[in-house]
């Protein structure tokens, strides 16, 4: 087989032969160099200074691959970091698995790998093991990424639904809907041009700060698909408490609101990639907001509502800007743009 450089991924790049070796040694290893990965053993050996770890995995199939504020690579690192972060863990190591459609330009792949490397390095997370597969044209959409992450649980931190009590406050670290509206506005199906930017970001630095500097954070979750509405409904269902929020307190960027209004979407249902919802004891609510606001990822942090006792089946209710009330339902899947 010829040793010449190709400018596109071929099926043979996943065949386990020379081309696979070239892909790994030229494009992957140099970007993620660390002792564990460089051994290229069948599994990574890690020495962790804790017996209590968190382990998570997620797959990324975003379209388009690049969008204002991020790309599939950054998303794949941040998403997994965030799953660990909201579980009360400090992310340590990550796996990286790529499923690549034949024909993907190396230029595109390199750009994604650069983004993965930069995001992982910024967050002190080592890529310690990985896999690459190639599939025939049409069997994948350019590239799919799976990452799995391991984090060390912060000492003394026990997050969970069972901690939540009536009177607890609900905190969010910033504006909602930015990621989902950005990606939707770029999709070919919609073709809507605007000044939107995804909020894609890794939250572990901020969540670790919040968890180590306060006592009384009860529960955290990142409101990704299904948005804030889905996360709050999950909390209500799991705890049997009502949740009461206030529309006027929820940070929403005006551009996001305008785009959502134009397409007939409810911003509460739109995905976020750099946000967490925390349920906190009322006495530390102000402190939590202050800690967040001192961090770049929490400038618009706000208390948006509270946990309320109910004897009925639990619901999420919001007080609207003009003082009315409405129920916030669990979103039901795909949002479709309306006619007029």
């Amino acid at each position: 087989m010829s040793q010449k450089e190709h400018d596109k991924i071929l099926l043979a790049h996943g065949g386990g032969g020379q081309l696979s070796d070239q892909l790994i040694r030229k494009h992957i290893l140099p970007r993620f160099a660390n002792n564990t990965l460089s051994e290229l053993t069948d599994s990574a050996k890690l020495n962790l200074d804790s017996k209590s770890i968190c382990f998570t995995t997620d797959s990324y199939v975003v379209k388009p691959l690049f969008f204002p504020g991020g790309d599939i690579g950054k998303l794949a690192v941040c998403g997994t970091i965030n799953d660990l972060a909201v579980s009360g863990a400090r992310p340590v190591a990550m796996s990286l698995a790529l499923i690549i459609e034949e024909g993907l330009a190396f230029e595109v792949l390199d750009k994604i790998l650069d983004s993965i490397a930069a995001t992982a390095a910024q967050n002190n997370v080592a890529i310690v093991t990985g896999d690459t597969k190639t599939v025939e044209t049409g069997a994948a959409d350019q590239i799919f990424i799976n990452t799995a992450g391991i984090g060390v649980r912060l000492e003394g931190v026990e997050l969970g639904f069972s901690n939540i009590k009536a009177g607890d406050k609900i905190l969010i670290n910033g504006s909602i809907g930015d990621h989902g509206m950005t990606v939707m506005s770029l999709r070919q199906d919609i073709g809507f041009k605007s000044q939107l930017k995804s909020d894609c970001a890794a939250l572990a630095d901020l969540t670790c700060k919040l968890l180590t500097e306060t006592h009384g954070v009860k529960f955290m979750r990142d409101p990704t698909r299904g948005g804030l509405a889905a996360t709050l409904n999950e909390i209500a269902q799991q705890t049997s408490f009502d949740i009461r929020i206030n529309d006027a307190d929820i940070p929403i960027n005006p551009t996001v609101q305008a785009a959502a209004d134009a397409l007939g979407f409810d911003v509460l249902n739109i995905a976020n990639e750099g946000k967490f919802v925390a349920v906190v004891a009322p006495e530390i609510a102000d402190t939590c907001v202050n800690i967040c606001r001192q961090h770049p990822l929490g400038q618009q942090a706000a208390i948006i509502g509270e946990i309320v006792k109910t004897d009925d089946a639990p619901v999420v209710e919001t007080i609207t800007k003009i003082g009315g009330r409405r129920i916030v339902q669990m979103p039901y899947g795909r949002e479709l743009p309306r006619i007029c």
Partner: peptide
Amino acid sequence: IFRNGIRGM
């Protein structure tokens, strides 16, 4: 009307 809770007002 629904989103703003007007029926209740």
